[in-house]
Design a protein around this nucleic acid. Structure first.
Lengths: 125, 125
DNA sequence: CAACTGTATTATTAATAATAGTACAGTTAA
DNA sequence: TTAACTGTACTATTATTAATAATACAGTTG
């Protein structure tokens, strides 16, 4: 399911949250789809279960997944109340990155092109 | 010049690089403008000189500043050869964030609006 | 020459990431 | 009902990284 870079300076649990988040926003993982269990994924990746749990906890905190004790962890369905808080954060993150992009000479047209590219990727699943 | 959040989980040297980068891309710091010396900034922020040096080294590696031993550290002038490598990285970073923005329901119009907002901020200095 | 500059080095401490091992309670199917 | 799953919580230990501390050296400048 994943590939981890052990020698990366980026912590393992962070690589995990990023990968899973990416699969969710690209539609590779569908709403309510079950994720591999903490123990299964930990043995697949030969990583400590606690590290997987930490990643899942973070994803749940950010609203990307939900966990049911005894059942499993699942991709969250996006509700309007959820997007509210996240949208504000995303707005800031976008603005910060846009400032850097402007500095590097990106035009509005190029940005628009990147947006459409992201949209396409999602629609292709 | 800066404010640091000691209790933040983000490392101090990283807060520093982010702040300075931000001031450069927003035009607050102009090309060839001299930055405070390692020692001055370290005593102003009551932070170890090595931490400042680490931040400056990182900024130099990314091409945002240049340092002349004995003279000081200065804001880099943006050249085409410099932007090349950085633009590719920025393209990836933008695409990654765009995918998340699409997922959260941002429209192309909203993205364009954010771009123009960033542009404005730069022009106002 | 004196007082700056960046840079490098080594050692030490503080904070964080990751592992290891164990335990408990809910779910599910044999 | 039991066996094998699930998530969750906790403590302890090790490994890695961040930050500090104290010097040192060479180039620059008035």
């Amino acid at each position: 399911m994943f590939e981890l870079d052990i020698r990366s300076r980026k912590p393992i649990y962070e690589q995990l949250t990023d990968k899973i988040k990416e699969m969710i926003v690209h539609g590779v993982l569908q709403p309510d789809e079950q994720l591999p269990s903490v123990r299964v994924l930990s043995s697949q990746l030969t990583v400590n279960p606690n590290t997987i749990q930490k990643a899942y906890r973070e994803l749940e905190r950010e609203g990307y997944i939900y966990s049911l004790p005894g059942k499993g962890s699942f991709v969250a369905v996006l509700g309007p109340e959820l997007t509210g808080g996240r949208r504000a954060e995303m707005r800031e993150a976008l603005l910060r990155l846009m400032a850097e992009a402007v500095y590097l000479g990106f035009t509005e047209a190029e940005i628009g092109e990147l947006y459409r590219q992201a949209l396409e990727q999602k629609e292709r699943g």
